[in-house]
């Protein structure tokens, strides 16, 4: 059973998740079919900047986050930015989109100059997120849990971060049990995606290096 306090926490996180999204003027540009390789690169850069800003605005609403040491706040955001962005992108890709949009987006990524070696695990991850059919509450909580990982580099007070992450994990566990009663392993599968994100993070560092050379 989810307590009243936990329900309030879920509402807070989900409202923040819905409120902070990539601006429409940027997402509209993504769906334009005519673009050059350079325009594509510039747009993906603009998207990345916007995604980071959205991530920070979402994170500010996580109860207790702004009470953490300021440099620990920076360390958590820096450390989780790539993973949080992949998770959010995967959730966007897994939603039902108007006809043709998925293909345009996928094509844009494939023609961006990013090597196939990286694109394959990325789209595999998007597919594995899609297969979970998460509800928005689960998506928002999983994002918050990703950001509140105490083991990010340079975090000084790991216990303070753990104290924020644990209630989120507890709420998510209960939500999964209630939403997916016939899938007792569902929560474990969600946590498994966090491990996949760590691998993607590692790929991302290598991908950036090769993209720069290209």
């Amino acid at each position: 059973e989810i307590s009243k306090e936990q329900q309030a926490l879920i509402k807070l996180i989900v409202d923040a998740y819905k409120r902070h999204q990539i601006p429409q003027d940027i997402t509209k540009k993504l769906l334009q079919e005519q673009y050059s390789a350079e325009e594509n690169f510039l747009l993906l850069t603009e998207m990345a900047t916007s995604q980071v800003q959205v991530l920070v605005e979402f994170t500010k609403n996580i109860p207790g986050f702004l009470s953490l040491d300021h440099e620990d706040q920076i360390a958590l955001l820096k450390g989780s930015a790539v993973e949080a962005m992949f998770l959010r992108s995967a959730q966007v890709f897994s939603r039902k989109m108007p006809s043709g949009h998925t293909e345009v987006l996928e094509e844009r990524v494939r023609k961006s100059g990013i090597s196939e070696e990286f694109i394959t695990p990325m789209f595999n991850f998007y597919k594995s997120i899609g297969e979970l059919h998460m509800i928005q509450e689960e998506q928002a909580l999983l994002s918050a849990i990703t950001i509140l990982s105490p083991d990010r580099p340079y975090v000084k007070d790991q216990q303070a971060v753990e104290r924020l992450q644990e209630p989120m994990l507890d709420v998510l566990r209960k939500l999964c049990a209630l939403q997916h009663p016939l899938e007792p392993q569902y929560f474990a599968r969600l946590l498994g995606r966090l491990t996949e994100l760590r691998t993607l993070n590692h790929y991302h560092t290598e991908m950036l290096a090769s993209w720069r050379v290209n």
Binding site: V52, Q53, L77, K78, L208
Partner: peptide, 21 residues
């Protein structure tokens, strides 16, 4: 580390300011 400086700048600015501004 150099590539992360851009990321850190964006994060610091966003943490201090308001996105709408």
């Amino acid at each position: 580390p150099a590539s992360n400086l851009g990321l850190e700048d964006i994060i610091r600015k966003a943490l201090m300011g308001n996105l709408e501004e």
